[in-house]
Design a binder for these strands. Sequence first.
DNA 1: TATTGTTATACTCTATAACTATA
DNA 2: TATAGTTATAGAGTATAACAATA
Lengths: 150, 150
Amino acid sequence: MTVHASGGLGIADALVRLSHLVQHAFADVARDHDLTPQQLQLVCMLIAEPLGMTELSRLMHLERSSMTGLVDRVEKRGLVARVADPADRRACRVALTEEGGLLAAGAHGDVVVRLDSMTERLERDDRDRLISVVAGMLAEQGLTRPAAQA
Amino acid sequence: MTVHASGGLGIADALVRLSHLVQHAFADVARDHDLTPQQLQLVCMLIAEPLGMTELSRLMHLERSSMTGLVDRVEKRGLVARVADPADRRACRVALTEEGGLLAAGAHGDVVVRLDSMTERLERDDRDRLISVVAGMLAEQGLTRPAAQA
DNA sequence: TATTGTTATACTCTATAACTATA
DNA sequence: TATAGTTATAGAGTATAACAATA
C-alpha cells in the first residue's frame, strides 16, 4: 500500500472524482438545453463529422441496439438525420441538422466555459501540463478522434 | 479563440475525454461484478461511512426519488440496508452489508488497478502534479468528502 | 413550516436475442 | 459467412408531482 501526496488521495480516486465533476457539469449543460446527457454527448460527437451507427456505438461504449433508440429520439426531435451511405447500402451516417448543429455548438461552448472556469485558477504551466498528460493517456488508449467530442 | 498546446486539445475537451475514459473503465468493472455503474458508484460511496438519502442524492447529483429506487434495487440484492437514524425518526442511513462491503472493496480495488495502469507510464512528477491539481479543483468545488468515493 | 423520504407516473437508457438486408 | 442496422422485450435509471411522517 503506497502513501500518496495531497491528503492520501491516490491517482485513481483523483481521476474518478474529477470525472464526476466533469459529468455533473456536462449534465447541467444538457439540462439547460433540454437534453439528456447521452443526447448531448451524441450531438457533440457529430460536430466534427457524420458517423455510422457502429462507429458511434464504439465511441460511446454502447450496444448498437441502444444507439438505435438514442438516435431515434434525437432524430424525432429534429437535431440529427440518418443519411444513406453511398458506399455501403447497409449503412447510414448520422449527421447533425442545421438546428442540431447550432444546438451542439452552443452546448459544447457552454461545457467549455464551465470547465474553463473550473480550471482558471491553475497556473498556466499546470494547465499545459495537465493537457499534455491527458493527451498522452488518450493516445495510449488509442483514441485519436475528433477534438470536439464533448 | 486561443490556440492550445497538444494538437489543439483545449483543457475542457481534455477533461471531457479523460472523463469518458474513466467512466468506461468504471462501467467495465461494474459489469465484471454484475452491477450497473450507478449501483457501483453507490456502494463505493458508502465504503467510508453510511449516509442518508438526501446526502446520497446530493453527492450523486440525483433527485431523492431517483435515489429511492436505486437503493431499493441494491438493497433487494442484499448489498446495502436501510438503518434507522437514532437522531431523526424521519431519516434513515444506508449502510453496506457484509457482502456489500466485500464487493465494494473488491470492485473499488479493480477500479484503482485499472486507472493506475492507465497512468503508470507517467513520470512520478507528472503524476504527483496531476493529483495535486485535481485535489485543488475538488477543494474549490467544495468537495471534501471520503476518498474511497469511486 | 420545513425537511426526510416514499409513491405514482411517464420517460429515457441499456442490454440480450432474434431478425433483415447487404457485403 | 460476416457486417450494418433494426425490432422486440425486459429491466434499470431519472425527473416531476403529490404525499406521509417527523422536526
